[in-house]
Design a protein around this nucleic acid. Sequence first.
DNA 1: ACTAGCTTAGACGTATCGTCCAACCTGGGC
DNA 2: GCCCAGGTTGGACGATACGTCTAAGCTAGT
Lengths: 207, 207
Amino acid sequence: MNQSSTNAIRPLPDDLAERIDLAAQVFADNGLDATRIEHLAKATGIPRATLYYYFPGKEHILAHLLSRTLRQMTVKLSAAAAEPGTGRERLTRLVREHLVFIGSHGPTYRLLFAELGRAASLVDIAAGVDLAIMAPIREALRDGQRDGSLRVDDIGAATSIVYGAVLITGMQHLLIGSDRQLEDRAAALLDVILSGIGTTPKPRRSR
Amino acid sequence: MNQSSTNAIRPLPDDLAERIDLAAQVFADNGLDATRIEHLAKATGIPRATLYYYFPGKEHILAHLLSRTLRQMTVKLSAAAAEPGTGRERLTRLVREHLVFIGSHGPTYRLLFAELGRAASLVDIAAGVDLAIMAPIREALRDGQRDGSLRVDDIGAATSIVYGAVLITGMQHLLIGSDRQLEDRAAALLDVILSGIGTTPKPRRSR
DNA sequence: ACTAGCTTAGACGTATCGTCCAACCTGGGC
DNA sequence: GCCCAGGTTGGACGATACGTCTAAGCTAGT
């Protein structure tokens, strides 16, 4: 996940770096395999030969896009996690920011998700996901545990659950569309995660 | 999702139906695009020409495998959901069964997961996922809501969350390996979902 | 004006796809 | 026992897309 070094074969000039982002839509629409390099060339305005000059192949272009997105995500989420507050407050912010990010990076995020299942290819993507997404959650949970704002028996399990909940909620938002606002979904999600759905001794705050 | 009609171009003889399952491993290892039809032929012992005799192409073979898995899943999960008990008890069974299923269908489940992100191709897979997975959860939540064994403000949101939690937990189990038993993970997961991770029975204002 | 490196069109060899055909089994009907 | 319909298969085929390569242009710095 270190810069573009693993993806682009040589430093990518700024003007190309901008235009290559247009490839995300193409990948998202067709999937990795059905995407023709020629099509990427047309969509980005970068000639085929130039693409091959900078990237060994199309999957490296995809990897470039994904790791760029992951880096942005790391920045956004770790910023959200770094702000002061209890673990619980930070977790809340994280979930919100994460959903917002999904909402604003639809195509790329879909790709990221699709690639997550692959074991072999694009390995460091998995590492990047852990760094960008899981780590901040884990951190917030741990701190919430310490400062008493959260009750977490099993941090590993809870991390997976939080991530899973955000992921599926986000995907639903992307695929099914925004009949409901993200804010709304985030609130409902947090309510479930914080309060659980078991019958509770006492009424809890609902949104 | 209706039988193999959409995937196999003609009824698949039993002996072939058995051997075609061996293709799952190949797909899981390489991903759809990197899988060579010749490789599938070798792995299953079914000659290339015969594969093309029954399937229009490799992605239809994949679709066949996925929808078969989904059908098994529908059977398993709806059976678990059908057993008597409160909504809460059924939800618990569902989560357990689901995780067990993931554990015993690793390769295919990974594929299913990878394909979920694609919007265009294999569309009815998405519908199948909803039927096999989301629907039983939704049902159990609704019933739990009715019989008072669960407290669910927003069934749609809760369904996504339960599914997300199970999915990621299952994937983690598949990818990272079984350092922990599935039973263990299932228990931790249910604990979080039912009780939440907010600080416990602290009286709150109801709205 | 010269050079080094970026850029690009186009030609090329290779791999894999999906199609097609002709030959080969095999089992049921007569 | 013979015949035919339909399943089965090897191998050849054209098409497509890949990734490589070359050579010609185009800069920008010296």
